[in-house]
Design a protein around this nucleic acid. Sequence first.
DNA 1: TGCCTGATTGCCT
DNA 2: GGCAATCAGGCAA
Length: 202
Amino acid sequence: MILDRSIYQKKTVTIARELLGTYLVHDSPEGRTAGRIVETEAYLCRNDPACHAHKGQTKRNAVMFGPPGHAYIYFIYGMYYCFNVVTAPEGVGEAVLVRALEPVEGIALMEKRRKTTQLHNLCSGPGKLVLAMGMTPQMNGWPLFEGALTLHTKDSFACPIPRKSDIVATPRIGITAAAELPLRFYLKGNRFASRRCIVTES
DNA sequence: TGCCTGATTGCCT
DNA sequence: GGCAATCAGGCAA
């Protein structure tokens, strides 16, 4: 079942936590791939200089200022893309970065796209999961409540539904500004989270 | 295991 | 012109 649009009315940090355990599904011409979200980061409009929208709207971040529940996909480091869920009301500019997925469907297709057969390495990072899921910059701005790229409820596949006590909050990864804010969330002990996440865990 | 670096390009100041 | 919400591989220990 596709996540109801009403979830995107909640606060960005709440959405970052509630997306853990939900499923990202992409129905592509090559086939369906799906993954359970196990790691997210919140990026806020106010008091958060690490957020792309912090300095106001530009051509690059325009989608962040659009209606919530849409995909914000941006290009980084000359060769990778990152996938975000736009949050906050139109005109505000906040988002949740999806950092890692646990593969649940279309694993053979993910392996082909990622050129590796190591299950725990397919989607364990924001750049990796974009490749594994076959997402492209053309999907920037696509809705996530209808169409080929959708978010599904926590009971859509066989994985367990996380409890609140399973969620760990830590500082975000790879940023220099506001590096101390505990706005990264992941499922405790999950081996499909990104590498630096697992290091922190042990 | 873990640190360090090169790759590579568009956007913003 | 500098830098960025990254990743893979090389090297040392």
